[in-house]
């Protein structure tokens, strides 16, 4: 019995303290708006959103992605895009430089208004995913006639 209870207690204390410190740093991170799930994936892909009156135009930058590897989910004013941009080198070639990497991503957005999910148009062209998101009837701007 060379390891006394005090030593074990000390070890436990150190572990507990470490646990508490981790929690503390996590809380600290949260209070500054740092979210680990975002740090892991980053803001990938980059997106734009414009309000064009009766619809929103959404663009996401996804060069080289296959449309089979891309999913778009919509509910009310919640939009989620997810997928994987697979980068595979051609067969029989050696790789000298590899800056483009396979990326798996999920990114969600809160749109400024509800959209009519049934009338959404999606296109994938020149590495940009473009979504035309018609606003739900009740959300559309209305012209008021003055009597």
């Amino acid at each position: 019995m060379t390891t006394g209870w005090t030593d074990i207690n000390k070890m436990f204390e150190a572990m507990l303290l470490k646990g508490r410190l981790d929690e503390f740093y996590e809380d600290l991170g949260k209070s500054f708006g740092w979210r680990p799930e975002l740090a892991a994936v980053g803001y990938y892909p980059r997106t734009n959103l414009t309000d064009e009156g009766d619809h929103f135009l959404f663009i996401a930058e996804l060069p080289g992605i296959e449309k089979e590897n891309l999913q778009v989910k919509l509910q009310g004013n919640y939009l989620e895009i997810s997928g994987v941009n697979k980068i595979t080198g051609p067969e029989g070639y050696s790789t000298h430089r590899s800056e483009r990497k396979s990326t798996e991503f999920t990114r969600s957005f809160t749109l400024p208004a509800d959209v009519d999910a049934g009338k959404v148009k999606a296109t994938l062209k020149s590495g940009l995913l473009t979504l035309t998101l018609p606003k739900a009837e009740a959300m559309k701007p209305v012209q008021i006639t003055i009597n």
């Binding site: 790789t95 430089r97 590899s98």
Partner: peptide, 18 residues
């Protein structure tokens, strides 16, 4: 960019979205 090479050619693949 990704750069690949075989005996016949060198390939440069560049991302130019939009």
């Amino acid at each position: 960019v990704n750069i690949y090479e075989n005996e016949e050619e060198i390939l440069l693949c560049l991302e130019l979205p939009g």
